[in-house]
Computed example of a mutant assay.
Amino acid sequence: MMEWLLIILTLLLSLTSLASVFRRDEWWIRVFDFPRLQLSVLILAALFLSLWALTFDLWWHYLLLVVLLGNLIFQGIRIYPYTILAPIQVKKLLDEPNDSAISILVSNVLTPNRSVHLLLKHIEAYDPDIVLTLESDQWWQDQLAVLKDRYPFQVNVPKDNLYGMHLFSKLELVEHQVLNQVTEDIPSIEAIVKLHSGKKVKIYCLHPEPPSPTESYTSTDRDAEILLTGKKVINQPYPCLVFGDLNDVAWSKTTRLFQKISQLLDPRRGRGFFSTFHAKYPLLRWPLDHLFHSADFKLIQIKRLSGIGSDHFPLYSHLQLTESLQETPNADHKEKKQAKAKILKADPIRKEID
């Protein structure tokens, strides 16, 4: 009985690993990109169970062990860059921050959530230069009107479809626009921010539609919006920041391709997962909220904040714009073609893909 249980468990775990290798966009395949840490724990448990339960007097006992080890190595390779054992990708600022620093708080507030006081408490404590709220509707806009004096520059996009967003900034927004890049009613915000030093930074605020049985059957539109933003970034003359709830994990094919296309860095690499979802289920958490930046920023602080009643934790990042550049990821010709194909597959509203 135990042997059959181990065979079935090994087959199921192997299928989850294989599913994430396939270049298919259906949600029931892409969902296995998310719980790699949880799957690694299950594989490890199956390994220990095999060592305890099997006698290893049959050849397939050894095969079972090899298959489980292969699965563990496969999952481990994906999540390793986001552990403290891996090299950091973004250098820590060793000097005192100056007037070219910028701090950002990203929070998916969950539309029906009414604990606005908890978000305001974080804003008071961390005093970020920029606050981005996601899933914020007209009720949230009304409640956050108290921020008007502290954050005179605002972009309000209230929506009742779980894709509203509000941008609050102490720093001058030299220009901004609200875009529907891939599909109607899924907005994004682009703006040029002037730092206290007078230097300008381009920011991109995203919240693409996730692949799920209740929202989008495939990840096609999500992938296209992420990659389309990456192609925009690489042509910018300004330092760039991309942040928001990307509804994708840091180690997915799409996010890794986005980093190569955009040449943006991830301050979490070598520092931890900073898992922001799901706030209510500790055993089912992964990093959905992100901040990526160009190579001329160094990290002052990145922190997952305590819950605000939402299914997401807020993410706080503090960066310093510097004169020195860091090593960046780069896309080869094949990866650029792959990104273009993914964007075209979605047939985006904005076809800025060259």
Rank of each mutant, 00 (worst) to 15 (best):
M2C: 01
L6S: 04
L9E: 09
L11T: 14
R23F: 15
R24D: 02
D25F: 13
L37R: 13
L37C: 06
I43F: 00
L44P: 03
F48V: 14
T55A: 11
F56H: 08
N71R: 01
L72T: 13
I77E: 02
R78V: 08
I79A: 03
Y82M: 06
Y82Q: 06
P87N: 04
K91D: 11
L93M: 07
N98W: 15
I102D: 02
S103F: 11
I104T: 08
V106T: 15
H122C: 07
E124F: 07
E124C: 09
W139V: 15
L144Q: 01
D149R: 12
V157Q: 05
V157N: 03
V174A: 10
E175D: 15
H176G: 12
L179V: 06
K199A: 12
K202E: 07
C205E: 09
C205R: 02
L206F: 14
H207Q: 07
H207K: 03
P208H: 02
S212L: 04
S216I: 11
T218F: 08
R222K: 05
D223P: 11
A224T: 09
T229H: 06
G230P: 14
I234H: 06
Q236G: 01
Y238W: 10
Y238F: 13
V249A: 13
V249S: 11
R256D: 12
F258G: 03
Q259F: 01
K260F: 11
K260I: 08
I261G: 06
L265R: 02
S275R: 12
F277T: 05
K280I: 08
P282T: 02
P282C: 03
P282F: 09
L291T: 07
S294T: 12
S310D: 06
F313M: 07
L315Y: 10
Q320V: 11
L321E: 06
S324A: 07
L325I: 13
Q326P: 08
Q326C: 08
H333N: 14
K334G: 14
K337Y: 05
A341V: 11
I343W: 02
I343L: 01
I343C: 01
K345S: 14
K351T: 14
D354G: 14
